[in-house]
Design a protein around this nucleic acid. Sequence first.
DNA 1: GCAATGAGGACTAAAATAGTACGCAATCAG
DNA 2: CTGATTGCGTACTATTTTAGTCCTCATTGC
Lengths: 155, 155
Amino acid sequence: MLKLSKMSDYGAVVMAQISRHPDCSHAAADIADRVGLPRPTVSKTLKLLLRAGLLNSQRGANGGYRLARSATAITVRDIITAIDGPVAMTECSHGHGDCDLMASCGVATNWQRVSMAVRQLLDSVTLADLAHDAPIKLPVQLPIQSVALGEAHGI
Amino acid sequence: MLKLSKMSDYGAVVMAQISRHPDCSHAAADIADRVGLPRPTVSKTLKLLLRAGLLNSQRGANGGYRLARSATAITVRDIITAIDGPVAMTECSHGHGDCDLMASCGVATNWQRVSMAVRQLLDSVTLADLAHDAPIKLPVQLPIQSVALGEAHGI
DNA sequence: GCAATGAGGACTAAAATAGTACGCAATCAG
DNA sequence: CTGATTGCGTACTATTTTAGTCCTCATTGC
């Protein structure tokens, strides 16, 4: 399905929740209640986001989590990468030559280009965009630069 | 990881293989040998591609598979959809309102837009592009139309 | 009729994913 | 100093998804 893992999905929801009150400290249990997810799951998600440097945490009473930087400086790709690891369409897309079919498949290079385009697309959406209540207006064209996937085939 | 399933990956490789000789009939066992994959797996892949209308098949002696239409008229998204089902980033991205968090997450609408952009990106790459031996040249800008994800944030 | 080839389904095995539980560490309030 | 609160880390289990195999039937060409 080429879909996000649930954990990444949760990560986005959690981050959006925090970003709505960037100046408060958010306890894990509090966030869990607000988004309606089990606390241990939210906790696990927060830990991964913390480790990736997207959040800061404060222990002890009245502690909690807050954004490490502005919501406009955190991209969707940051969140996905923090939780699921690097965005790559196929095994061979991340560079390591551990696909023994590369010789016969003859498709690897172009998959890498598609992966790159997806990464750029995901980089162009910030947490601030995502957390907007309303669908984002302003239909501007969003150029995917230096992707070079041949002519645009009728999209 | 936001990665393709192996089956979709195989599907792309198999389709690329067939597209290199569009005028011949390709037996399943023959394709399997060429791409170095187990025959039953290839057979299963071919079946799914056939059912999606991407391939035609001919039974009996000297039978085999061939493309149902030109390689330039088959997109990467067609192949992925045929094997893994619709491309959707999250549960709620495909329209069915079977996510009971939609009310609290406040993020659904914008995920749908991201999914749409990914689908358009995948639609813009054809089987012919993928099967090119060399990386595709011609670095043109590829506009993702009507996506409207706010300003391009520095990509 | 016989051999080659695809079609379909049932089944098993393996891996990734999600969810849970529990104990330790740090901080703050009194 | 003590206890309450809250985050941190690890290990474990269950579930689901994915991958792979096998067997039998249907169709076609010689």
